[in-house]
Amino acid sequence: MNRKRYFHFFIHLILIVSFVIIAFPVFYAFIVSTQTFQDVFVYPPKFTPGNDTIQNYVAAWETVKMGRLLFNSTLISVAVAVGKIVLSLMAAFAFTYFGDFKGKGLFFVIILITHMLPLPIRIVPTFELMRSFNWVDTYYALTVPFFASATGVLLFRQLFLTVPASLCDAARVDGITPMGFLMRILIPLSRTNVSALFLIEFLYMWNQYLWPLVVTNRDEMRVVQIGLKMLLAGQAQAADWNIIMAGTIIAMLPPLIILFVMQSSLVKGFSMQEEK
């Protein structure tokens, strides 16, 4: 009994410490985003909110047309997350259930290799490809190159391998088609992983900076991360940290909203999986 309480205390201590470490920058960014330009540079730094909140957020929003950027980022993040999940599910399904198509091993290796090449290495050839398609400055360029996902294929393949073979047999006797098996059995069983992958891929795309910078020129096609950089680049001398931080907080909101919306289903999903 005593040992258990000691253990709980210890766990909580770790949780609290890591929370503070992770949350402090966010907290500080928020404080700065409410302060005046002068407040930011006093020493020692002030950890109390200032009075410029509204001005800072309005300035951040207007300077870089934040509305359009948020729209772009949300659009491409959702599109990529959905596209990746759909493609991964189909590919994993093929790799798991269609035993012996020609070149199966080779295809799998190719998919894995694409995963091992980080984006900066692929950036030049991919850009050339986009240009030859006339896709520069379009949503296609911002989304299509991200659709293939080795992570997703591997994740779902591992998951499908744990589905008992007899479930497939039972469904076949019940009269299911292969696509029906994917849609009505496998995908419902993968719900948790689909949600998790959606979240991960959404964030991954939301945080893209280099690729959008390379394939877009017009301001209307820019994304949030570039917008933040633009806030920083506008100044000749000292940066307006209060306004930049306001922009940062704005940029954080959509992922946060998604996280909150999906949190309950994720937690439920994980606890359900443990039951199995």
């Binding site: 479930l167 039972a170 076949r172 019940d174 059995i185 069983l189």
Partner: peptide
């Protein structure tokens, strides 16, 4: 003839119920 058209039903050793 595919299983669904054989006019059979099967009960599996591990039941194979659809968990969801």
């Amino acid at each position: 003839v595919p299983p669904k058209d054989r006019d059979i039903a099967m009960v599996f050793q591990n039941y194979a119920l659809y968990p969801h």
